[in-house]
Each structure stands twice: as structure tokens, then as C-alpha cells.
Design a protein around this nucleic acid. Structure first.
Lengths: 136, 136
DNA sequence: CAATATTTGCAACCGACTTGCAAATAATGC
DNA sequence: GCATTATTTGCAAGTCGGTTGCAAATATTG
């Protein structure tokens, strides 16, 4: 399925910016921040637009958001099984504490955890911190 | 050991603000953001001072920092075994995606993870997301 | 109590995030 | 293809957390 169909399937209108951001995410090995996207985008687009595009992707289940070590949001394209209702996101992430880059790691089996009474568990991920190859 | 001695042991001068922030962290079941601290502090203190106090605590191994679901730094007092060189922080945290509160969970055994060549692993923690009792 | 090193408060700045609103544009039906 | 409608975009502007430089206040030491 091409990306136009993918956008349509998730109820989003097809625009140049959305198509470009979507392929950017799909072709990246790392999770990208909004300013990463802004810098790498072939065309130029307003920051607010990029903010809303990424937000729309997350809401639509096209991307998920992960906070980097500096508290900045980064986005990575979702597995095809993600939907609006249920993000499939139980993998592990590596966070470089120096440059802030976030990498998806191989899937690992996460331990089950007890939460206090009344708490609702949704998803969980393992966060590994350290230095990436470039910063180590 | 009282908190004055604790500060001294970690190489920090004893000030009213530091003592107050330290007990605040020790008596909280949740990790506190800088503005949480500012609001809960019996005395008033400049936000820059609180920023630096929390930063000093982290550097000294008196508190650790964890990012909440909104990318805001939150601090929790360290186990007595923490030091400047090595934070003991392999437990799990619960992040409420609505109010942003962060709770420490019981210790769990974390799975070992392979990281790409050249990457240096430092610490890792399990992040469980969902809604806390108040928000669910 | 004096000398010194640290800590504090203030002003000020940065970057990420966010909203309201009007203009531009994609989708829909004819 | 064209008009209508609902969405998306860009701009202005504001919020908030994080951060630094510097001078005044304060803790420690002898």
C-alpha cells in the first residue's frame, strides 16, 4: 500500500507535507523530533504545521511519540498493526543521554508489573540509557 | 543520619531551601517536578534556586531525575546506596499519561537487552504508562 | 570574627509546545 | 471540471520549563 492510501485509510487528507513527513519517519532508523523533521524535510513547512502533522499521525495511529532524554518529543512510524485505539508499542528504546537520539531496539519480553489499586495499565516500554556509538 | 549530615556527606552546604526540598522529596510517594516543589515548599524560593538545588541533588546522588509523560523533569530521593558515580535506579516507574504523575513501583527484574555495536549501556528502567487511580 | 568559597535571586534568554483565527486547499457531489 | 464544504495551513502570539551571567547574601573554615 502506498502512503496516499495509508493516509486515507487512517482518515487523514493527503497533503504534500504529510506525505513527506510520513516517508521521512518510515526511512529513519531513529525517532525524529519536530525540529529534526523540519530540518530534513525537502520542502519547507511551518513549525506549527509540523507539530499538527505529527500530532495527527499519533492520534491516527501512524506514529508513536517517545520522549527523549531531554524531554523532547520524538516520533517514529508505527508498525502496521497500530490503530487509533491501540498502539502496539512494547519494544525497548535506547536513549542517548548526550545527543538525545532515540533508537528502537529488538523486541524483548517485558516483565509483568503490579500497579497500585485503581491504576490502569496501558502500555509499557523498557528504556535503556547510555551513549550511542557517536557519543561514546 | 539527619538531613544536615546527609547534605554534608554529599559535599553540599546546608541551607534552609536544601533542607526543605530534601524532606519534601523524602516524604513524597511520587516524583516531584520543579514546580511541584515550588508549590509545596513551606518557604518561598526563587525558581532558579530550586532548579539548581535539584540539579545539585542529582549531581550529588541525593535524587534522581525521571522525565514524565509530558517531558517534564521530576525528582525522587535516591536510595541510600546512590552516589555521584553510580545511580542505583533499575526499578520501574508508572507514568500517568493524563496528570503526568510518576510513581515508583516495586523492583522488578529487567531483561537484558542487546544494543548496537559501540553503544554503551548505563542504566535502564521499565516505564509503565496508563492512568493513575485519580485519572482513571 | 575575618576571609573565602558557595549559594541565592534577579533579569533575561532559549527552545519546545500550544491555541485562535483567517486564508489556502483537499475531498465531495453535481 | 466546478462549486461547496470540511480540513489543513501559516502566522501571530503566548505559555512553560530549562538555563546562564552576575552581583549580593550567606555558609564554612580557621
Amino acid at each position: 500500500m502506498d502512503n496516499k492510501a495509508l493516509l486515507h485509510k487512517h482518515g487523514l487528507r493527503i497533503t504534500d507535507t504529510r506525505l513527506a513527513v510520513l516517508s521521512l519517519l518510515q526511512n529513519s532508523s531513529k525517532a525524529l523530533s519536530q525540529s529534526d523533521v523540519e530540518r530534513s524535510l525537502p520542502q519547507q513547512a511551518d513549525r506549527v504545521t509540523l507539530f499538527r502533522v505529527l500530532q495527527a499521525f499519533e492520534d491516527a495511529g501512524l506514529a508513536h511519540k517517545v520522549m527523549d532524554a531531554h524531554g523532547v518529543a520524538r516520533y517514529a512510524s508505527c508498525a502496521p498493526t497500530c490503530s487509533t485505539e491501540q498502539h502496539q508499542d512494547s519494544h525497548a528504546h535506547f536513549h542517548c543521554t548526550q545527543c538525545g537520539d532515540v533508537y528502537c531496539l529488538e523486541d524483548v519480553e517485558l516483565p509483568k508489573v503490579k500497579v497500585p489499586k485503581g491504576f490502569k495499565q496501558q502500555e509499557s516500554h523498557l528504556e535503556v540509557e547510555g551513549r550511542c556509538a557517536a557519543c561514546a
